[in-house]
């Protein structure tokens, strides 16, 4: 008989005991350990997921802030650029104005200097011209010339127009002192007599005359009495000429600024 029923029973009991032992010492602890590990891994995964979600959230937040920062920076940069442009334009305008003012001032100074120089040159030339003329006439003045001058003077006295003649006559008659006749050179007696005669005949009266020598007259004779004066000399011609030249120069000086003011803006624009 291959089957021993006592052994069968014993083995069945042994097997059930073994089942209990295995459950007690093997399956339960091992499964518990596996479950604990699974839970731990699940917890760690959940934690990792939470951290990942947190990291994602923080990354989104960071990106949002970064975008805001970029936007803000761009705005500030744009604003600063605009302000810089405005400021540069303002400074440029100020500089241009200052340059214009400086240029205008410099031009004015240049014009003034030119005008002064021109006037000085004119005056100097005028002075030189008249000095040369005076010197030449003074060098040329001789006794014969003086005689000729005396003749001319007497003729002028005689040919005076009515009104001047009346005024001078009145002055001569009213004068308490003798009338003063001045000349560049000492007049000879014939000339003095001729002048005395001419005065007496012209004003039909005895005119008292006193003769003096006056070198500043250049070449000429002057009769002065009681505020009235009759003069004929080359200096008068020269003075008249000098006056005419002076008027001409002053007129030219006045017209120059107006001419320059029209051309000035063009120069400024060119310099820009």
């Amino acid at each position: 008989m291959l089957i021993d029923w006592f052994t069968v029973g014993a083995q069945a009991l042994n097997f059930l005991i073994l089942v209990w032992l295995m459950k007690r010492f093997l399956y339960k602890p091992i499964l518990n350990a596996i479950d604990a590990r699974d839970k731990r891994i699940a917890a760690e995964l959940a934690d990792a997921d939470a951290k990942r979600a947190e990291a994602r959230r923080e990354r989104d937040e960071f990106e949002r802030k970064n975008n805001e920062f970029d936007q803000r920076r761009a705005e500030l940069l744009s604003q600063a650029t605009d302000e810089a442009k405005t400021e540069r334009q303002r400074l440029f305008d100020e500089a241009r104005k200052a340059t214009d003012a400086l240029t205008a001032k410099r031009m004015e100074t240049l014009r003034s200097d030119a005008r002064n120089l021109s006037q000085a040159i004119s005056r100097r030339a005028q002075q030189e011209v008249f000095d040369i003329a005076r010197k030449a006439l003074a060098d040329l003045a001789t006794t014969s010339l003086e005689e000729r001058l005396g003749d001319v003077f007497t003729r002028r006295v005689r040919e005076m127009d009515g009104k001047a003649k009346a005024a001078l006559g009145e002055a001569l008659r009213a004068a308490s002192d003798p009338a003063l006749v001045r000349s560049t050179f000492d007049l000879p007696a014939e000339q003095r007599a001729a002048i005395q005669n001419a005065l007496n005949e012209t004003f039909s009266a005895e005119i008292h005359v006193r003769f003096e020598t006056a070198p500043e007259l250049v070449s000429g004779i002057e009769l002065a009495t009681n505020g009235q004066k009759v003069v004929w000399s080359i200096a008068d011609y020269l003075a008249s000429l000098e006056k005419g030249v002076g008027e001409l120069l002053s007129k030219q000086a006045k017209s120059e600024p107006s001419h320059e003011s029209k051309t000035a803006p063009k120069d400024v624009r060119k310099r820009q």
């Binding site: 089957i3 052994t7 069968v8 029973g9 083995q11 069945a12 097997f15 059930l16």
Partner: peptide
């Protein structure tokens, strides 16, 4: 042993 296998089969 057939007794053991029989015991297991009975189980």
């Amino acid at each position: 042993s057939l007794s053991t296998t029989a015991a297991l089969a009975l189980c």
